[in-house]
């Protein structure tokens, strides 16, 4: 089973994301800030990270920088999921090694589309009209 680390300081967002991703077949671990997320990754690299930007202690952007420098830290697909919806933030995230970017608010369709985009889930059956 593929694993996804959900990093967000909001318990509500983590819960929503967990429900969506579990339905997509992921095993979920959670972290409430970048520092705790790094600890999780040092123990075992997840296949995917759904990553908030603004969090206390260590934000998502800083976490990504640290992650990509860890041994094996280039493996997880990182999908930002943040209210930061400016082109400047998106560009910075991509340069820092993010694979995809979700602008909140999000729903199941968006998460599924973005996870497909980075090859984390199989293409679903085409949508009928």
């Amino acid at each position: 089973m593929k694993t996804c680390l959900v990093v967000d300081d909001s318990g509500v967002v983590r819960k929503i994301a967990r429900r969506i991703l579990e339905e997509m077949g992921f095993e979920i671990t959670e972290a409430e800030d970048g520092e705790k997320a790094l600890e999780v990754c040092k123990l075992a690299m997840p296949n995917a990270v759904l990553l908030d930007w603004n969090m206390p202690v260590m934000d998502g952007y800083e976490f990504l920088g640290h992650l990509r420098r860890l041994p094996g830290g280039d493996v997880p697909k990182v999908v930002f999921c943040t209210t930061e919806n400016g082109m400047d933030h998106i560009s910075r995230a991509l340069h820092a090694g993010a694979n995809e970017y979700i602008m909140k608010p999000f729903d199941k369709d968006i998460v599924a589309a973005k996870f497909q985009e980075v090859g984390l889930v199989e293409l679903s059956e085409p949508t009928p009209v």
């Binding site: 998106i90 995809e100 602008m103 999000f106 968006i110 589309a113 985009e117």
Partner: peptide
């Protein structure tokens, strides 16, 4: 956000 890769956006 539906179907458009972020790089293309």
């Amino acid at each position: 956000q539906r179907g458009l890769p972020i790089q293309m956006l």
